[in-house]
Design a protein around this nucleic acid. Structure first.
Length: 271
DNA sequence: AGCCAGGCCCAAC
DNA sequence: GTTGGGCATGGC
């Protein structure tokens, strides 16, 4: 598909985009960029922040696809100002995580990925997802190397649970197959609250799916890290999930999910 | 070695 | 409606 160069890029930093826990299939490459797979396309991406140039070298996907995927038409500078005006203490987290953008990912890929994420750590989540892709995804040959798409729901839905369990997914194996089947029947939910109807999806994973898979930017996922943050920064007891949710609603509002990404990045990668 | 990880299900209160 | 044990696996 060749190279795509997009100019006028501001408020973007690849490390922060890919290392804030929203996606699992992008890794640093040897040319100071990142390589990953999205929408069935393998892609190398590079950013010259000073020049404001984003360069993509992908096996597929046109500029419109990648522009949407990387959320290039959202003004994050304005969002950061709005959040900080309502809750000044977030400024430090915004600065530490400058250039985070909420990717527009495929709902079903997000659904399966965050089912895998539960009670799991990020390095192992990435390994589990790559294992599923290599085993059940479509091979993508690109520049002499092999990549794999995220497997279609049609494929996963037919896999016996004990077979997919060979990939060391633990008790999540059955959740995954059941989720693929449900998604095949129902498609992308029209009501975001319905993600909770998936077996194996609880409040935290549901909020991740809403935020990353349905672009519900107000969704505020509370995991073990955010509990620590909310305790440290705002004095909440670690089991006071309701208090934290309503605080996020009131203080961060429609951009609560973006605020959460800054905070999550801040505590995992800085503090 | 032992605690913990982007938690959830289910039974028992 | 809330609370706590159990859960597969491996990173650190």
């Amino acid at each position: 598909m060749g190279r795509i160069v997009i100019d006028n890029i501001t408020d973007m930093n690849l490390e922060h985009v890919f290392d804030c826990g929203q996606c699992f299939r992008w890794n640093k490459n040897e040319e100071n960029g990142y390589t990953g797979v999205a929408g069935g396309n393998a892609c190398h991406v590079y950013l010259d922040e000073d020049a404001g140039l984003l360069t993509l070298n992908a096996s597929g996907g046109d500029e419109n696809f990648w522009r949407a995927y990387f959320d290039l038409d959202t003004d994050y500078g304005a969002i950061k100002e709005e959040l900080a005006s309502r809750e000044p203490k977030i400024r430090a987290a915004e600065e530490a995580g400058y250039g985070i953008r909420i990717l527009n990912q495929d709902f079903y890929e997000v659904l399966i990925s965050f089912i895998i994420s539960q009670n799991n750590n990020i390095p192992r989540i990435k390994k589990c997802i790559e294992a599923i892709c290599e085993r059940y995804g479509d091979r993508i040959d690109f520049e002499g190397k092999e990549y794999y798409s995220f497997p279609k729901a049609e494929v996963i839905a037919k896999v016996p649970v004990d077979e997919i369990a060979e990939l060391k997914l633990g008790y999540r194996s059955s959740y995954i197959v059941r989720a693929a089947r449900k998604y095949l029947e129902e498609g992308v939910p029209s009501d975001a609250e319905k993600v909770l109807d998936y077996y194996g999806v609880g409040p935290k994973v549901a909020n991740c799916i809403k935020l990353f898979g349905l672009r519900r930017l107000d969704a505020f996922p509370i995991d073990t890290w955010v509990k620590k943050i909310m305790n440290d920064m705002y004095g909440f007891e670690e089991n006071d999930i309701k208090g934290m949710q309503s605080f996020a609603e009131e203080r961060f509002g429609e951009n609560g999910g973006i605020a959460q990404q800054y905070l999550f990045n801040y505590y995992r990668n800085v503090k």
